[in-house]
Each structure stands twice: as C-alpha cells, then as structure tokens.
Design a protein around this nucleic acid. Structure first.
Lengths: 351, 351
DNA sequence: TTTGGCACTCGATATAAAAGAGTGCTAACA
DNA sequence: TGTTAGCACTCTTTTATATCGAGTGCCAAA
C-alpha cells in the first residue's frame, strides 16, 4: 500500500500538509493572503507556482484555506488552523534565558494573590498579548481554623483561615454581647469539629448542626454555628480570574474592528464567561489551544486561547492562559504557557 | 460706562459669549464644526450669517474657537470649553426619576467595597461613559485593635482592625515559636499603646519603640513590635480606585484613534496616574470639571473629567468621577455626579 | 452695525484609467 | 501522471482628474 502519495486519515496528502504548514507560518508572520509564487519560494521544494496552485485548489476544496477574493492569495480557515495546531506545529524549545526570566519573576516571595498577578502580567509581558490566570477555587480548600474577636458591643470579627493560607474575615453584628471567653469556647468547638474538612462539607455540616442545635435549644451553640456560617459564606467560591495586558490586543489590526474589540473587552470586564470557558479545560493536562470561532462565543472571533492548567501537589488548582489573535506565533507561545504553568505550580508549593 | 456692548473681564462681549455658548452646545450635539449659517439659525436672534462670521472672527482671535481648515465651520478650543464650563453652562436639574434610580441602586446594604463598586458602575451606566470612584485612603484611618493567632509552628496570623471597620491580615513567619499567652500579651500591649491613633502615627511610633526596645534588649517587646510593623505595612495606603465602563469610551469616535484609546486604557489599568490626578481635587468641594489637555497627561487628550468629592460626616473621604470625551453633555453629567456623591456619602454613613 | 454679494479655499465625492497581484485553465512536456 | 509555461480573466489598489459643496473673508452698500 506504500504509494508515493501518502494519504492521512483526513484525506490530505503529506505534501499538501507541508504546504499548508508553510502557508500558515507565512500567514502568521505577515497577516496577508499568501500567493502561489510566495509559497513556492517558501516551501523550498523547487516547484513552480502552477504546481502549488493545483495543491491549493485541493486544500480549498477540503476547506482548509480560502481566498478573500479571486485575485488574492489564500488564507487559512479555522479548520486549517485546527489541523495546523493539532498535527503540523513544530514547537520551539524555550531559550534558557527566557526560562530564567520566568523563574526569577515568579521567584520572589509574596502572598499567593501577588504571585498569580505576577504570573498573568508575566504572560502578557512576554507574549505581548493578554495574560489570564484563574484563581484556585475555594471549594477545594479545607478548613483550618476559625477565631472570633470581640470588636465593640454587639460586633464580632470572625476570621477564617484555610489550609492554603488564605484568610477570610467578616464583621458580624450579633444579637447580644459575647464575652471573650464565650467566643473562645465557640471557636474551640468549631475548630475541633471542622478542622481539616473540605470547605464544601463544612458548609453543609454547619447547616446540619445548626438545625440540631436549634432543636435542642442550645442557644450558644446555635449562635456559634450561625456566625461560622456567615464567615464560611463570605469566603465562598470567590473564584476569579486575573487578566493583564488587555490593551496589547489593540495593536493587532486583525481584531481592530472596534466592534469586535469592544465585545472582547466587555467580556474581560465581566470575566464570568472567560472563567466558564477556561473551566471546560480544567481536566486536560498540558497545553490546550482553541480557536475563538470554535467556542461559540462571538466575542472571541479572530482570537485564539492557549491554555494550561497549573498544579500543586498533583492537583490542578487553576488555569493559565494567553489570549491573542488566531494569527499568533503558537510555537513560541505554547512553551511559554507550558513552562510558566510548571514554574507557577512549583512556586505555589513552596510558598 | 454702560455702553451697549458689555465687556466682561475676559474681553468677550456678552453677545459673543452667547454665540460661543450656542456654538458649543451645537458642537456637543453633533460633533462637527459649526458653520455660520447653522449658528445663525440656532442662536435665535435673527441675524444674518455674515454678522455671525464677524463675531466668529473675534472669537477666533481670542483663541476660543478654531477652524480645522478654511472651509469648515468652527470648533471650540480648550479655552473655549473652559469658558463655557466656567461661566456659560446652564445646568439642568436632575429628573426625579433619575434621582430615585441612583438612590435605589445605592440603597441596598452591603459592605463598603460593594457600595463603591456599585457607585462606579452606576455612574458609567447612567452617563454611558467611564465611572471612577476612589477608595478612601488608609492614612486617615485609625488603629483600633490588633490580634495574633498562632497558626502552626513559627507561623502567626496577625490581624489589624481599623476604626472604619476594615480588616487587614498577614501571615508572619517568626523566628521562634510563640505561646498563645505571649501573643495575647503582645497584642494587649500594642492595643493599649496604639488604640485610637491615626495609622500614619502608628507606623512612626512602632519604629521609635522598636529602637527603644532593641536598645534595652527587650527581645519579646521587639518581636511584638516587629510583627506589628509588618501588618501595619500590609494595611498600608492601599489607596485604590474602581473604574467601570471603560469600554463605553470606545463608542466615541472623538477618541477613536486606537493610539489615543490605548493610552487611556493603559492608564486605567495602571490606575496610579488617575488616582494622583483626582487627588489634586480632593479639597475642592462640589463638582469640578477639567479638560484633558489642561492636565498635561497626554492620555487624556480629548477627554474631560467631571469629579466631585464625597463626604462622610463632613469629612471628604474619596472622589467620584466620570471620564468621557470633552464633547460631553456637561449639563446632564454634572448633576448626576453631584447627586451621586451626596447619596453615596449618606449611604456610607448609615453603613 | 448689519447685510448681501462674490471670489476663493479646501475637503469630500465621483469617475476613470492604469497597475499589480494572483487565479484557473489548457496544452505541452518529461 | 505529475509538472510546468502561457495566457486570459478577475479584483483590488493606486493614481489622476474633475466636480461639488460648505464655508470663509472681505468689501461695499444699507
């Protein structure tokens, strides 16, 4: 069966694939339709433009490239890009210097929030596109310690520490005044009951016990649980994402139709949709790429997202992403996102 | 001296001022150079275009209007706008409905941060421009209470509560382990020494006492003070501003040169300059307006800022602003900012 | 002081022509 | 059978040119 023209599953000859690759690389560089003459030179196979034209015809029939009008060259379609990304891409190795840069920028100690902000800024700085980091969800974290401090009459400060070192606090207006001793006792009880428990479970357990306490008319207990409930809620899934360098996207005339750009920026301000989108890739491991049009979200037309999860102790805790025009240098961006994810994970671990 | 042509200090006749006013109002509506014919109709004084032209010549000589080219009408200059704003503007009264809207949107209870966010969103929503709210500075707030909680070996959680109810916390890695009792004693001492003191002073006093403690080799005291210093720094002037509706500005083709817009958005992301700018008006009371070019900040070319301080108990605690194109409907925006400032102040008071 | 008249300027719009890039197809070639 | 040269054709881009129209500035008359 070994004919000269090897056909891959997709029905595209090996040579045609090579041309597609070269065409897309060229298109990524210049952003303009690529003609047969240009391609003939770039491909380096010493073929005439006419030959190329024949192949282009095939590629067009397969929906991998398209021409904006009769006398322009070809530009890749979304499916063309998809094939390029999935099987044609040759990822560069990151230069040692760049790895070092990432490492040092994420090396300085600071609290977790700070670190994540740095990471998104770093991504946007290195790639000249928008950098996104989603913040670990609260759901996964565990209860470590709760404390109550009397502030003034009828006002108590509740402090909740989770095992990832985050601290949530809330000022509670209580029905009656509590002594310091009472508060300490309540805290002791709660710490004893919930320590180490995953926050989601804490929430449900608090509710259960609250009902139990009410039935048995244990006022003190009920109040303690009520207060705990409030602060647990305050520390609730405040999942969020940090976006840096949005304005970099204004430089790409690919997206420059203000219309388009505005939709994108609105999405950034809102964040919800972006977050939802990235969550879909939460379970993949390693770098994933997807193209705006594939997502169904209109605001991402013309864009691509390069994303990777980052892990602490084998657990995926959040996502990292770069958003830019579909016409981006994937072979440079992919390793950047990849390495940053790893370094970020490590940095979070020895925090 | 009562001649027919009354000359104001600026050397502009009363009638000329009236024309300037009408011209600017028209320019604000249409965004296009206003010609003599149009102006003749709008002015409602039954004068011929030729007469208007003469007046326009005078206004041009005074630098209040300019023409983009020979055969276009006139557009206001920055100084023209300045005069318009300072003395020609007739501010509309806000409709009862709009006041109600503002009141209800700021009525629902929530923490202070929430309220401020709502305010900026409200401003941007009502004006279709960008809304800004600066958050009260920490400097002005006073120390109320500090507490230390042992977390694990060599890790202590320090919590600082200020009299405005804000809570700052920081996890400290200590050189040695502290018992709960030691920590309580340290907290007691600090609370006793600093309670009620303004934060700026707390910072300096901590340093003084730290030196004293070191000289007298009072290790325990020194450590307590060191820890206090860290958390005080953590709660340092985290002055900040909340910006909403930036993307609204993309709709105005006045600013649409992507160059311009990008600079503006970068400034929004950075925030520092905006904050610094608004701080200059911190002491003014009532609505202030200024025009981008006057600020010297390049990114504000083509923009104006309508700003007002908001007060709690007679004290100015922050600023509120709307940023939009210089060609904005001041007579509508001014009362909105004004009223919002008052309502926000009130809402913060009964928080 | 106001007005009509008039020449003039300059951007905006329209039209046409030419240039350039690239294609598709056909026929010849190895 | 794959490859190539040639050629007509299509569309965009550029350039040149004419025309229109809005609006000005100035002058002379009311």
């Amino acid at each position: 069966m070994a004919t000269k023209k090897v056909i891959s599953e997709s029905g595209v000859g090996e040579r045609a694939q090579h041309f597609l690759k070269v065409l897309i690389e060229r298109y990524i560089r210049d952003g303009q339709p690529v003609g047969s003459r240009t391609l003939a030179k770039d491909a380096g196979m010493d073929l005439s433009p006419a030959t190329i034209r024949n192949v282009m015809c095939d590629l067009e029939d397969l929906g991998l490239v398209a021409s904006p009008h009769t006398s322009a060259g070809r530009i890749p379609t979304v499916t063309g890009f998809r094939m390029f990304i999935d099987s044609l891409l040759t990822v560069q190795r990151l230069q040692a210097g760049e790895i070092e840069r990432i490492r040092t920028e994420l090396a300085y100690p600071g609290d977790a929030g700070n670190l994540l902000t740095s990471a998104s800024q770093l991504l946007s700085g290195v790639t000249h596109m928008a950098g996104v980091v989603t913040v670990p969800r609260r759901e996964r974290t565990a209860f470590r310690q709760i404390e109550f401090l009397p502030l003034s009459e009828n006002r108590v400060l509740a402090i909740l520490v989770t095992n990832d070192g985050e601290v949530a606090n809330r000022i509670l207006n209580t029905h009656r005044d509590f002594t310091r001793l009472e508060l300490d006792q309540a805290a002791n009880f709660l710490n004893h009951s919930f320590s180490g428990l995953e926050m989601g479970k804490v929430r449900s357990r608090v509710l259960e016990e609250l009902n139990a306490a009410r039935e048995s008319f244990d006022q003190t207990m009920a109040q303690a649980l009520e207060m705990a409930g409030e602060v647990v809620d305050a520390s609730a899934p405040r999942e969020d994402c940090l976006i840096a360098g949005q304005t970099n996207l204004m430089e790409f005339e690919d997206l420059a139709s203000l219309q388009q750009l505005r939709k994108l920026f609105d999405a950034f301000a809102e964040k919800r949709e972006i977050l939802h989108l990235l969550d879909q890739f939460h379970n993949a491991d390693g770098v994933q790429i997807f193209i705006g049009e594939e997502s169904g979200f209109q605001m991402l037309n013309g864009c691509s997202i390069v994303t990777a999860p980052y892990q602490v102790d084998e657990d995926v805790v959040g996502m990292l992403a770069v958003i830019g025009p579909t016409r981006m240098e994937y072979e440079r961006v992919i390793p950047i996102v990849d390495v940053t994810a790893k370094i970020l994970g490590a940095a979070l671990k020895n925090r």
